[in-house]
Design a protein around this nucleic acid. Structure first.
Length: 422
RNA sequence: GGAGAGGUGGCUGAGUGGCUGAAAGCGCUCCCCUGCUAAGGGAGUUUAUUUGGAAACAAGUAACGAGGGUUCGAAUCCCUCCCUCUCCGCCA
């Protein structure tokens, strides 16, 4: 959610940003400003009448105390019309405020000046590449490798739950656990505090990070208890400090959190969902940063660099994309995607997405920090995957397989797995 | 799941209808005094929002778990929900 005052002061920028993000039209910006005018004028009116009524109530109190009942009665008679006016205005305020709020929630975050303008994924900029995408005729896609050894059991996953909920068996289960541990350790070594988070959140939390009202279709719901299964650890972790005022000296706050992630992924098909490419449940290690506004773009770079380093250490070629305005999402102001090279499929797989939300999430969550002595200001929030596990597993299986079909263990994972081959 | 007790400011904790946005204490900030230290004195110390103002600030409104109700007036009375604690039951 953007600040209404920011919108008022930067109307054109917000309107331009909306179109750049691929919204069909932007009249909503003018609408919300008009609604805000209306809201303010009615609030002003209502406050004035309340003030009058408060004064009278006090007078009545004093008169009653002095035993002057008749005089008090006279004033009480005067208040009845005020009471009605207040009630009418309050109802109006409530309605208008809700309308203003829902308009405000539909305005996307403004892209940062450094973000390339574009309409679709074709307009994303290749920010950097590391390593060389390689091709060998004998390399198999990961689904053939796991099938040969029985390392991932898709069929029984379907039986037990449904498509997209596989079992991992033996070495691949071990490999995933090793990756999780490795990623958490790496984050811990550069100052991220490890968090274990709830896997279900309530509606307020889903709203806080922007999954509601925009993307509820991506989440599994437990309506009986009013819960949502988390689509990413970003949701519980960013909401950890919701409605708080943090001390300036505590910033930046950095968390690393491993969780499974649940996504309905309605409408996916074809090669995108083959094997481990797209699942309804997958494991991910997530990084979340809560920072001072003036640092947030530096913090975004260091977040990206941290995620990239993990792939370098695994010796997996990757490329980093700077997402264009049209492909970066509603809540982000700048976003990088990191894609690992999948040599068995001859394609790039997204394994991380590092975003700066500026104060967009913070405002929705009322997450502030105390500046200097008095003032409070919204923090900036960022997050990034470091990394999504199954796609890294795909890349490892495909890149570390040998012609004899054996799969080597990456050096950095050997301490966790304890042998040279899976 | 059953029974009972509670939810007040950064913390502890008063407050059962009116002058209480909230006593008192602790903590914190600033000032004064004492050569340091200890002790003492004074002032300040929630948040959101509206109006005015360049700002400092001033004034108004709202908020005592959340939402609704009663009343001229609610932290205080009533209803619903949420949460915490104690006991019982169940349980990894």
């Amino acid at each position: 959610m953007l600040d209404i005052n920011f919108i008022r002061a930067n109307k054109e920028q917000v309107e331009k940003g909306m179109l750049a993000k691929g919204e069909k039209e932007n009249s909503i910006v003018a609408e919300v400003l008009a609604k805000d005018e209306e809201w303010r004028s009615i609030v002003h009116q209502a406050d004035g009448i309340r003030s009058e009524s408060n004064v009278k109530a006090k007078q009545i109190g004093v008169l009653m105390g002095q035993g002057k009942k008749e005089e008090a009665q006279a004033i009480i008679a005067e208040t009845s019309s005020l009471k009605e006016e207040i009630k009418t205005l309050e109802e109006k305020v409530k309605v208008i405020q809700e309308e203003r709020e829902s308009l405000l929630l539909r305005i996307p975050n403004v892209p940062h000046a450094s973000v390339p303008v574009g309409a679709s994924e074709n307009d994303n900029e290749v920010y950097s590449t590391w390593g060389t995408p390689f091709k060998d005729e004998w390399r198999k896609p990961h689904w053939e490798i796991v099938e040969r050894y029985g390392w991932v059991d898709f069929e029984r996953g379907v039986k037990v739950t449904g498509a997209g909920f596989p079992f991992y068996v033996g070495p691949v289960a071990q490999l995933q656990r090793a990756l999780i541990n490795y990623f958490i350790n790496e984050a811990g070594s550069v100052g991220y505090t490890e968090l274990q988070a709830p896997y279900f959140v309530n509606e307020d939390s889903a709203r806080g990070t922007g999954q509601i009202p925009d993307k509820e279709d991506m989440m599994y719901e437990i309506p009986r208890d009013g819960f949502f299964a988390i689509p990413t650890a970003e949701v519980p972790v960013t909401n950890f400090h919701r409605d708080e005022i943090l001390a300036e000296q505590d910033l930046p706050i950095k968390y690393v959190c491993y969780t499974p992630c649940w996504r309905r992924e309605a409408g996916s098909y074809g090669k995108d969902v083959r094997g481990l490419n797209r699942l309804h449940q997958f494991d991910k290690v997530e990084l979340v940063k809560i920072v001072k506004p003036e640092n947030s773009y530096e913090e975004l770079e260091s977040l990206r660099e941290h995620a990239e380093k993990l792939l370098q250490d695994l010796d997996l070629p990757y490329r980093t994309l700077l997402m264009c305005t049209g492909d970066m999402g509603f809540t982000q102001s700048k976003k990088y995607d990191i894609e690992v090279w999948s040599p068995g499929q001859q394609r790039w797989l997204e394994v991380s997405s590092c975003s700066n939300f500026e104060s967009f999430q913070a405002r929705r969550m009322q997450l502030r920090y105390r500046k200097e002595e008095k003032n409070t200001a919204m923090v900036h929030t960022l997050n990034g995957s470091a990394l999504a596990i199954p796609r890294v597993v795909s890349a490892i299986l495909e890149a570390y397989q040998e012609e004899n079909a054996k799969v080597k263990v990456p050096d950095v994972l050997k301490p966790f797995i304890g042998r040279d081959y899976l």
